[in-house]
């Protein structure tokens, strides 16, 4: 991993931004619309569709090489109370990126955070954990259970 500058609050913000990005667009929209008191915000950057060049590592752990691109949508918003939020999400769903940015901004406000922490972030994280857990259980069911055939010799 590249050396990264230490940014205040980075680990926490990284956690929720990752959850928002890895959620399915439909889940994000449903969670967002489930919030009664959604704050007003304005776009600092209207949702924009672009690409990120995905890199792999030679041999799995070596130096980087360019594998291919992925579509990504990004957005930035500012709440009326002043907090700014950003969204970077895989795919081309503009609403997903915009809501991610709005939730990111709300998570940075002590007043608004309780509104979205449980209803959006925790809810999306749970859905992701469940999906991963189900896949891990399916994978485990396909594990090969080797047994050794005992060779018997007829006496004599």
């Amino acid at each position: 991993m590249a050396v990264q500058p230490v940014v205040e609050g980075a680990p926490e913000r990284r956690r929720w931004l990752s959850i928002l990005a890895k959620a399915q667009p439909g889940e994000v929209l449903a969670a967002w619309e489930g919030i009664a008191a959604r704050p007003e915000y304005r776009a600092l950057r209207s949702p924009e569709i672009g690409m990120v060049l995905v890199r792999g590592r030679m041999g799995g752990t070596g130096d980087a090489f360019n594998l291919g691109e992925m579509t990504v949508t990004r957005a930035a918003v500012r709440l009326e109370s002043g907090e700014t939020g950003i969204g970077y999400v895989a795919g081309r769903d503009r609403k997903h990126a915009e809501i991610a940015a709005a939730v990111d901004a709300m998570m940075q406000s002590a007043d608004l955070r309780p509104t979205v922490e449980g209803a959006v972030i925790a809810k999306l994280a749970r859905a992701q954990d469940e999906r991963r857990y189900t896949a891990a259980r399916k994978a485990a069911a396909t594990k090969v259970d080797f047994f050794t055939m005992v060779r018997t010799r007829s006496p004599g």
């Binding site: 990284r14 990752s18 970077y88």
Partner: peptide, 20 residues
């Protein structure tokens, strides 16, 4: 599935932007 990490200019630190 593997998470993809990206460092947006606005942030200066890496976030996951999706699973591939």
């Amino acid at each position: 599935e593997v998470a993809v990490e990206f460092i947006p200019d606005e942030l200066g630190f890496a976030i996951e932007i999706g699973d591939l």
